[in-house]
């Protein structure tokens, strides 16, 4: 997938995560994370975000995420949706892994 614009998914509600993705030059994937459970799950959330970006096959992107205690499944869904929106793609791949 190729990023063509900025993409957003999620909300600031409790147990959700707001994910914004921006296209950047180069191949780097960077994550800027703010989380209400940073001390307990900050590392894990970062890991899940990076994993999801990799699965989507996207690079050259900056992810800004504001987490309000979302579970891993929610984080994956929000990151993937934001990327799909940024790529203007409808290849959702809504299948169960």
């Amino acid at each position: 997938m190729k990023l063509v614009k900025n993409g957003t998914a999620g909300t600031m509600e409790s147990c959700d995560i707001l994910v914004q993705v921006e296209k950047t030059d180069g191949k780097k994937v960077s994550v800027e994370l703010d989380s209400s459970v940073m001390s307990l799950y900050g590392n894990k959330i970062r890991e899940v975000i990076l994993e999801t970006v990799k699965e989507c096959g996207v690079s050259g992107v900056k992810i800004v995420a504001v987490d309000k205690g979302a579970l891993d499944c929610t984080i994956r869904a929000r990151v993937k949706t934001a990327l799909l929106r940024a790529c203007e793609s409808t290849e959702y791949g809504w299948n169960v892994k």
């Binding site: 001390s39 799950y41 900050g42 590392n43 894990k44 579970l71 891993d72």
Partner: peptide, 10 residues
């Protein structure tokens, strides 16, 4: 199982 094992606090 739902939330994952948390990291130790610093």
């Amino acid at each position: 199982a739902v939330v994952g094992k948390p990291d130790d606090l610093k």
